[in-house]
Structure formats: structure tokens, C-alpha cells
């Protein structure tokens, strides 16, 4: 089927929405077509699409969590994605790291993912950081981003992001999976007003060495996909309205095939957030 972009009637869908403010500039026709199914959603609009194009998201880790998260954030039209991963694609990654093909084996994950995603959405900017970020660089990149997604596969990186986001008082998202266990989280260091104080990753118990990881325990392939999609959905919601939400965790229960959402309470004596939580 050949699509004639010049005959596309933009008003047929945009008329369904009431933009909160006057549009600065309408979406170009090709982009309007690209995002048309999203624009049909009752709470979406060209204005919201244009706002999303101004957003910058840092994704740390382009494995089983990062691949689905980045795919759907790119598809939704986040304007600038920065993908960080120092690892190379291995054959054992392919079943769940869906941005890679056999021909990518040996390539850097961030660069291979960026190349695939750019083919998926040519209307956004995607950059790769093909290195393992040290803490100073991580802090600099987190400060740059509107939102951070921790899709890493190791405790040290997760704790570093937790610490930096606490210092910078930045809301962030992340997930973790191994075997049939997994959960995603939103952690919001901000407190005060009507928002009850929420905990951080160390309050959850992530301050001690944790067993194995996927290399030792394996991982249930659909679980990392589901967690990655949750991160993408939570990120879009957070980017759209910046709602100040209390920290929570979505916990996967394999036997019931369901997720339970639980609030993450702050530990008043937490070494990471206990000092600043009352500020």
C-alpha cells in the first residue's frame, strides 16, 4: 500500500481532542501519520506529542529490560533517547533482547540498539554511550535527563543511580529480574506537601550483595519483557504530567501470573535517604 502523505486529513483526528493551550507548531504530516494511533487516544493531542518531543530520557542498560523500554519510548516519540551500555551483544541475549539480531553479536549493545531504534523512528534523536559509566559521568547524565530508567543488570549500578537521584532529588524508574522473580519501581525522593514520604532502593533492602543474577539463575524471558514495558508506560505517564507520586514497587508473582503494587515505605534510618527524607 502506498500512502500519500499530502492527502492526509489531520483535522479528522485532532478534532477529537481539546488541546490545553494553543499549538506552537503543528506536527509535520509524516509525524502526524506516524503517531496517528497514539493521537487518537482521548487524553493525547498534538500538543502533548510536541511536548514529548522536548523530553530527554537516559536508559542505563540495554539488555532484557532496556530493549523493550527503549522500543516503546522511541515509538511513542520521546524526543531524545540516550542509551548507555558497555556490554557486547552475545548469542544468549537474543531470545529476550529484541533489538538485536544474529548479525549484531559482538557489537556494542548501546550502538546496535540505537541503530535499530533509529530505523524504527527517524523523527527522534537517539545517541549511544558505549561505555560503563562511572559515578561522576552517571551523575552528569542524570542531571541532563528529564527522566532516568535503570535497566541495568547489576546492584552496583542500581545503587549508584539510587544515590545520585537521591542527591539530585530526581524521580526515577527501574526494574530487576532473575529467575522467576522480578519487580519494577518508581522512586520519588521528593517529599512534603500532601505527598507522604516514600522510600528508596536501599529501604527496599538493596544495600547488601544479592545473589546471582541472570547469569547464575537464568531468567524467565517474558518477565523481563513485561517489566520493560511497564517502565515504558510509567515513563510516558511521568513525562506527560510529571505527577509527584509516592515511591512504589510492582512485584511479579509467577504462580498467580500477576503483579501487585505496593507502596515503598521510607526507613527513617536509611543511610541513603534517611537524612534528607525529612527535609
Amino acid at each position: 500500500m502506498v500512502i500519500n502523505l499530502t492527502t492526509l486529513e489531520k483535522s479528522s483526528t485532532s478534532a477529537n481532542h481539546s488541546a490545553p493551550t494553543a499549538l506552537q507548531s503543528p506536527l509535520p504530516d509524516q509525524q502526524f501519520l506516524y503517531y496517528s494511533r497514539q493521537l487518537l487516544l482521548p487524553d493525547w493531542s498534538e500538543q502533548r506529542q510536541l511536548q514529548l518531543q522536548q523530553k530527554k530520557v537516559l536508559i542505563v542498560g540495554m539488555g532484557g529490560l532496556g530493549c523493550p523500554a527503549a522500543t516503546y519510548l522511541a515509538g511513542a516519540g520521546v524526543g531524545w533517547l540516550l542509551l548507555a551500555d558497555g556490554d557486547k551483544v552475545e548469542l544468549s541475549n537474543l531470545p529476550r533482547q529484541t533489538l538485536f539480531r544474529v548479525s549484531d553479536v559482538g557489537a556494542n549493545k548501546a550502538q546496535a540498539a540505537a541503530a535499530t531504534l533509529q530505523q524504527l523512528n527517524p523523527f527522534i534523536r537517539i545517541d549511544a554511550l558505549p561505555v560503563i559509566l562511572d559515578e561522576a559521568e552517571l551523575a552528569r547524565r542524570i542531571a541532563w535527563a528529564d527522566l532516568v530508567l535503570d535497566c541495568s543488570d547489576n546492584l552496583a549500578t542500581k545503587l549508584a543511580i539510587n544515590r545520585i537521584c537521591q542527591q539530585q532529588q530526581r524521580c526515577w524508574l527501574g526494574a530487576s529480574a532473575s529467575g522467576y522473580q522480578g519487580y519494577s519501581w518508581l522512586i520519588n525522593p521528593a517529599s512534603g506537601g500532601c505527598l507522604a514520604k516514600g522510600g528508596c532502593l536501599e529501604c527496599l533492602g538493596h544495600q547488601q550483595p544479592l545473589p546471582g543474577g541472570c547469569l547464575q539463575q537464568g531468567v524467565y524471558t517474558p518477565l523481563v519483557g513485561q517489566l520493560g514495558l511497564q517502565l515504558a508506560s510509567m515513563a510516558l505517564q511521568q513525562l506527560a504530567n510529571g505527577r509527584r507520586r509516592r515511591s512504589f514497587v510492582h512485584i511479579y508473582q509467577h504462580h498467580q501470573q500477576q503483579f501487585s503494587q505496593c507502596q515503598l515505605l521510607a526507613d527513617p534510618q536509611c543511610e541513603c535517604c534517611g537524612v534528607t527524607a525529612d527535609v
Binding site: A177, Q181, L210, G212, Q217
Partner: peptide, 9 residues
């Protein structure tokens, strides 16, 4: 709800 803490991804 009791669940194992993990650090993979």
C-alpha cells in the same frame, strides 16, 4: 507478600 530481592536485568 514475601519476595526475593534480585539484581538482574
Amino acid at each position: 507478600l514475601m519476595f526475593n530481592l534480585v539484581a538482574g536485568g
